[in-house]
């Protein structure tokens, strides 16, 4: 059993008051308490950006790596010990700009990872530049004349690349987000939650009010097994047109399930064995 007290780190959060990261942090800890995630079974991996600080604020084993690279680190952890719950905290700049290639290929691999994409559509930690999620026309320190590039849609991208579980949540809806985090982790395969996360300091477009006015829940009739239905819903974005919930969920063999070496045990549980290579050497004679 995990308690909130056990998850309490000695470091107080350093996010701006009102930051969406607080909601994600709280939802994750609530999920951990409900599911019993602790240092015997769980690892948090983060990239660099405001999101990445989360590792300091939860007392769980964690790896804060380089900007854009949490997915490869998580991939290595998962292959070495596939019994661990591995959560990847990443941002829109982290996952879609610096780490875009990793994002595509991680989805393709269908590793059993849960990706929590803190999507604030801005670079917050570097004090406000346009990100791959910023809308067209967006004015920031890097685009004072307005952004002339189209924003990326991360869930459509992940769907195309081969992810098997896709959802969108909102940092202001802690119980809803907690539920998505639990479901994503329970899904065997590559699961992405795009979390709409207002940056109260640098993004005056995607605010709490903006999201609350324009979000709606996917209906119960939405067919989560249909790629076509998922694409159709993911095309929506704008006034009264931001669906949240689970877009896509199919069961495909995970990467780890297809590796024979992992059929009986984890790599790490085997230890680092000294091996007799004399049989292989015969082939070189």
């Amino acid at each position: 059993m995990t308690t909130h007290q056990q998850l309490a780190s000695p470091i107080a959060p350093t996010w701006c008051p009102g930051c969406g990261d607080f909601g994600i942090w709280t939802a994750f800890k609530d999920a951990a308490v409900q599911e019993g995630w602790d240092n015997t079974n769980t690892v948090m991996v983060a990239g660099i950006g405001c999101h990445g600080h989360i590792n300091n604020f939860v007392k769980l084993s964690s790896f804060e790596g380089l900007h854009g690279r949490p997915l490869p680190v998580a991939a290595g952890i998962k292959m070495a010990n596939h019994k661990l719950n591995v959560f990847v905290f990443t941002g829109d700049g982290d996952a879609l700009a610096e780490g875009g290639n990793h994002f595509i290929h991680a989805a393709r691999r269908n590793q059993n990872l849960t990706v929590i994409l803190h999507d604030n559509a801005i670079y917050g930690l570097t004090t406000g530049q346009t990100s791959p999620r910023s809308p067209k026309g967006f004015k920031s320190k890097s685009t004072p004349q307005g952004n002339i590039e189209e924003p990326l849609q991360p869930l459509s991208l992940a769907l195309t690349a081969g992810a098997t579980w896709l959802a969108r949540g909102y940092a202001g809806d802690i119980p809803g987000l907690m539920d998505l985090i639990i479901r994503a982790n329970a899904h065997p395969g590559f699961a992405v939650i795009q979390v709409l996360q207002p940056c109260v300091t640098f993004n005056q477009v995607y605010t709490h009010i903006f999201f609350q006015r324009n979000m709606y829940r996917l209906s119960k009739d939405h067919d989560v097994t249909s790629k076509t239905a998922a694409y159709a819903k993911l095309l929506e974005w704008g006034e009264k047109q931001i669906p949240i919930g689970i877009f896509y969920q199919v069961r495909e063999p995970t990467y780890e399930e297809q590796i024979k070496q992992l059929a009986k045990r984890t790599l790490v549980s085997a230890g680092a064995p000294k091996r007799d290579i004399s049989r292989v050497l015969k082939k070189f004679i």
Partner: peptide, 25 residues
């Protein structure tokens, strides 16, 4: 009984190896 993984690029290669090593491999 070990794993060889072909990654998407060398950046991923080294980060995957670091992740695996962190996990104990």
């Amino acid at each position: 009984g070990y794993i060889y993984k072909q990654p998407e690029d060398e950046i991923s290669a080294i980060n995957m190896a670091i992740g695996a090593a962190y996990a104990g491999a």
